[in-house]
Design a protein around this nucleic acid. Structure first.
Length: 742
DNA sequence: CTAGGGTTAG
C-alpha cells in the first residue's frame, strides 16, 4: 500500500490539522487514509487527557469498518489507560457489524481487562471466546496477554494453567508468568519456575526481587540480586528500586550506598520512583542527612512524591517539626502528604496537631482515605475519645471509606481503649478478614479491660483459626495474665513462647512476667528473673518491682528498686511519690520526709494529674483545683450541688489518704477539687441526660473519688465511665463493675 | 512515599 502523502503528527494539534486535511480532501471514507489518520492519532494519545480518546473514537465512528480499524480503536483505549468497559462495547459492535476479530483484537482486550475494575467472569469469557474465534495458529500470539490478565486479576491458578496450556512458550510468556507469580506473592513458585526457564532476564529477576522486598523477605531479595549478577545480567532502575527497599528493611547503609553509586555510574534515569526509593532507604537506615542530599539535588517540577518520602523519613526518626517545615514549603500536597504528617504527629503523641491537620486537609479539598481514618482512630483510641471514635465509625458505616483489615483492627482497638468491650466484640465479629494484628488487638484489649480469662480464650481460638502468634501477641497474652493475676497460665505461655515457637523474649515479655510474679507476691522469683534475663532492666521493670513492693510491703527491696529507678529517671516524680508512700505505709516518717527534702533539693515537682472529657466533639481538660475553664461558674454550682447531695446521702469523704498536715475541712475541700470530679461536674451540666459521662484520667482514680463517683452515679441515675491508666471503672446505679479493684 | 496490635503507672 502506498504511503500516505501527509506527515505523521507529533501532537494532537497536528493531528487535528491532519484531520481537517483528510476531511476537506474527501478521503475520510477512503480506508487507507482513515486507518493512517486514526493510527497517527492513537500514537499521540495521552493517558492523562480523556478528551484525546473521545476525539479518536469519535473519528472512528465515522470511518469504514475493518478489523484493522477496530484494533486501532482498541489500541487507542489501551493507550488511554481505559478499563475494560469501552473495549467491550467495541468488541460487541464488531460482532454486530460482522467484522471478524483477530489476535490483535484479543491482545488489547486482555490488556484492558488486566486493569483495575475488570470482572473475573469477563476475562474468562473472552478467554473462551478467543479459542472459538481465532485460527489455531493465532492462539499462541495471545498467550502472554492472557497470563498477564489472570495475574493482574489475582488468579494465580488460571495464570499458571494458561501458561502450561500455551503450545508455544516464548520469552515473553516465561517472563510474564514468572513476574506475575512473583507479583502475586507466590515467590517460591516463581523461583522454581525461574530455575526451569530456558531464559532468564532482568524482568524475571527483578520481579522476584521486588516480590521478596514487598513480602518483607529482604534477605532473599539480596540473595536473588546476587544470583542475577552471577547470571551475568545487569540490574536496571527497577531492580535498584526493589533492592533499595530491601536495604531499608535490613538497615544496610553500606549496601544502600553502593546501589546509589550504581545509579550514578550507570547514569540511570532519576525517576520519581527511584528518588523516592533512595530517600526512603536512607531514612530507614537512619541517615536523614544523605536522604536530604538526594532530595536537595532534585530540580523543580517534581510531583509531591519525593516531598512525601522526605516528610515520612523525618517523621520516622522523630523529627516531626522538620517534616512540618517541609510540609509548609511545598505546594501541591496530596493525601499521602497529609497522612504522613498526621501519623507523624500521632506517633509523637501530638494528637491535637494531628486533628488540626485533618481539618486543614478538608480545606485543601482532600477527603480522608483509609490511611487517614486509621490514623484518626488511633488518635481517638489514645485520647479515649469515644464520641470522636463513634463519629469515625459512622463514616465507615456510611461507606465513605472501604472497610479493610487495618481499619477493622483500628476500630476494634478504639472501642477497647475506650472501654467499650461489647462494641469492640461487634466490630471484631463483623470483620470478614482477620490477621495476627486483629487477634492481638482483641487479646490485648480484653486484657486491658481486666478480662484476662476471655483474653486467653481468644488466644485459644486464634490458634484454632490457624494463626501464628508473634511476639506482640505474647505481650498481649502475658499482659492478660498479669492484669488478672493468672500465675500458672503466665508461666505456661512464657515457656510456650520460648520453647514451642522459638520467640526470644524481649524486655517487654520479661516486664510482663516480672510484673505478674511481683503482683502474685513472689518478689524473690521476680528478682531472680531480673537478674538472669539477658538484658539490662529498664525503668518499667523497676517500676513494676517498686509497685509490687508497696502492695506486698517489702521496704528493703523497694529501696533497692527506687535506687535503680532514680539512676535511670532522676526527674521522674512518680518514683519519689511511690517511695514516699511506701515509707508512710510502714510508718517510717523520718525516711518519708527525707524523700520530700530530696525532691526539693533536686527540684522535682509532682505533676498534677488531669482528667479529660469529650463534649460535642471537643476535649476538655481539668487539673486539680482548676478554675480556668470558661464555664467554671456553672461547674462550681454543680460542684456545690454534688457536695450537698453527697453529704445528705450520708457520704463522708475518705481523707485517710491525704498525708499532708492540714485540717479535716481543708482535706474535704482538697478532695472535692480532684480533677475527675471537676470533669464529671462539667459532664453533668453539659451532656444530654441520656449520655454516659466518660472520663479519661491520666492517674489512678483515688479511693475517695471511686466511692464518691459510685454515689453520684446513683444520685444522678447516670452511667459514668472512668478510664485510668490501666483500668476501666464502669459506674451504674451506685455500683462499679470494677469492684475487684478496691 | 502514607495505616492497625505492645511491658510499668502516683
Amino acid at each position: 500500500m502506498r504511503r500516505a502523502p501527509w506527515p505523521t503528527p507529533g501532537s494532537v494539534r497536528q493531528a487535528t490539522e491532519l484531520h481537517a486535511l483528510v476531511t476537506t480532501s474527501g478521503r475520510l471514507l477512503h480506508p487507507p487514509s482513515a486507518a493512517h489518520l486514526l493510527n497517527s492519532l492513537t500514537s499521540c494519545i495521552s493517558p492523562s487527557d480523556p478528551l484525546h480518546l473521545r476525539y479518536a473514537l469519535s473519528l472512528f465512528d465515522r470511518m469504514p469498518c475493518s478489523t484493522f480499524l477496530f484494533d486501532t480503536a482498541l489500541r487507542a483505549c489501551f493507550r488511554a489507560s481505559s478499563g475494560p468497559d469501552r473495549p467491550i462495547i467495541l468488541y460487541r459492535r464488531m460482532h454486530g457489524v460482522d467484522v471478524p476479530p483477530d489476535a490483535f483484537t484479543f491482545h488489547f482486550l486482555f490488556k484492558c481487562c488486566a486493569r483495575g475494575g475488570a470482572h473475573v467472569l469477563l476475562g474468562r469469557m473472552l478467554h473462551a471466546a478467543c479459542f472459538r474465534t481465532l485460527l489455531p495458529s493465532a492462539v499462541p500470539l495471545i498467550a502472554s496477554p492472557i497470563i498477564h490478565m489472570y495475574a493482574e486479576l489475582g488468579l494465580p491458578g488460571d495464570a499458571r494453567r494458561a501458561f502450561d496450556e500455551a503450545s508455544v512458550k516464548d520469552v515473553v510468556a516465561w517472563t510474564t508468568v514468572i513476574s506475575g507469580l512473583a507479583k502475586m506473592g507466590l515467590l517460591d513458585d516463581a523461583r522454581r519456575l525461574l530455575a526451569r526457564a530456558p531464559v532468564r532476564n532482568v524482568v524475571t529477576w527483578t520481579g522476584l526481587i521486588s516480590g521478596y522486598s514487598r513480602a518483607g523477605r529482604a534477605a532473599e531479595a539480596v540473595d536473588c540480586f546476587n544470583s542475577m549478577l552471577s547470571d551475568g545480567i545487569a540490574p536496571d532502575e527497577v531492580t535498584v528500586i526493589g533492592m533499595l527497599s530491601a536495604c531499608g528493611q535490613l538497615k544496610d547503609l553500606n549496601f544502600g550506598c553502593s546501589l546509589h553509586m550504581l545509579v550514578g555510574d550507570k547514569r540511570m534515569l532519576m525517576s520519581d520512583k527511584l528518588v523516592v526509593a533512595l530517600i526512603d532507604m536512607y531514612a530507614k537506615c537512619g541517615d536523614t542527612g544523605r536522604a536530604r542530599e538526594v532530595f536537595d539535588a532534585l530540580g523543580r517540577g517534581r510531583g509531591p512524591q519525593p516531598w512525601n518520602a522526605m516528610i515520612d523519613g523525618y517523621c520516622k526518626v522523630g523529627h516531626v517539626d522538620i517534616a512540618r517545615s517541609l510540609f509548609d514549603q511545598m505546594e501541591d500536597h496530596d493525601v499521602i502528604t497529609f497522612n504522613s504528617l498526621i501519623t507523624g504527629y500521632i506517633h509523637g503523641g501530638r494528637l491535637r496537631e494531628a486533628l488540626l491537620l485533618f481539618t486543614k486537609m478538608r480545606r485543601h479539598g482532600l477527603g480522608a482515605d483509609n490511611f487517614t481514618m486509621v490514623g484518626l482512630l488511633t488518635a481517638s483510641a489514645s485520647l479515649g475519645a469515644l464520641p470522636q471514635g463513634r463519629a469515625l465509625h459512622a463514616c465507615i458505616e456510611q461507606r465513605l471509606v472501604e472497610r479493610d483489615v487495618y481499619l477493622g483492627t483500628a476500630l476494634l482497638d478504639m472501642y477497647m481503649k475506650c472501654g467499650r468491650v461489647e462494641e469492640a466484640m461487634v466490630a471484631f465479629k463483623q470483620m470478614s478478614v482477620r490477621d495476627v494484628h486483629t487477634w492481638s488487638a482483641m487479646i490485648g484489649g480484653l486484657a486491658f479491660n481486666g478480662m484476662g480469662k476471655a483474653a486467653l480464650e481468644h488466644f485459644f481460638w486464634m490458634k484454632c483459626d490457624g494463626f501464628h502468634a508473634n511476639s506482640v501477641t505474647y505481650i498481649a497474652v502475658l499482659t492478660a495474665c498479669s492484669h488478672s493475676c493468672l500465675l500458672d497460665e503466665g508461666r505456661l505461655y512464657f515457656d510456650e513462647m520460648r520453647l514451642l515457637h522459638n520467640i526470644r523474649p524481649q524486655i517487654e515479655h520479661y516486664g510482663c512476667m516480672i510484673d505478674l510474679l511481683g503482683r502474685s507476691g513472689l518478689l524473690d522469683e521476680a528478682m531472680d528473673l531480673v537478674q538472669t534475663m539477658p538484658m539490662q532492666p529498664n525503668a518499667v521493670i523497676w517500676a513494676s518491682i517498686l509497685s509490687a513492693c508497696r502492695v506486698h510491703k517489702n521496704v528493703d527491696l523497694a529501696q533497692n528498686a527506687a535506687h535503680h529507678l532514680l539512676k535511670l529517671e532522676p526527674a521522674e516524680d512518680a518514683v519519689y511519690v511511690q517511695m514516699y508512700n511506701i515509707y508512710i505505709d510502714s510508718r517510717q516518717w523520718e525516711d518519708a520526709s527525707k524523700i520530700r527534702r530530696l525532691m526539693e533539693k533536686r527540684g522535682v515537682k509532682k505533676t498534677a494529674g488531669y482528667s479529660s472529657i469529650a463534649v460535642a466533639g471537643q476535649v476538655h481538660k481539668f487539673i486539680v483545683g482548676d478554675r480556668s475553664h470558661p464555664q467554671i461558674a456553672e461547674i462550681v454550682v454543680m460542684m456545690e450541688e454534688i457536695g450537698r447531695r453527697l453529704k445528705s446521702a450520708g457520704y463522708s469523704p475518705i481523707t485517710s489518704q491525704i498525708t499532708v498536715d492540714v485540717d479535716e475541712e481543708e482535706k474535704e475541700q482538697a478532695l472535692l477539687a480532684h480533677s475527675e470530679k471537676l470533669a464529671i461536674a462539667f459532664g453533668l451540666v453539659s451532656l444530654a441526660p441520656n449520655l454516659p459521662v466518660h472520663i479519661i484520667k491520666n492517674l489512678r482514680v483515688c479511693e475517695d473519688c471511686h466511692s464518691a463517683i459510685k454515689l453520684i452515679s446513683r444520685l444522678w441515675n447516670r452511667e459514668i465511665i472512668v478510664r485510668d491508666r490501666s483500668r476501666f471503672h464502669h459506674f451504674r446505679g451506685g455500683v462499679c463493675s470494677c469492684n475487684d479493684f478496691w
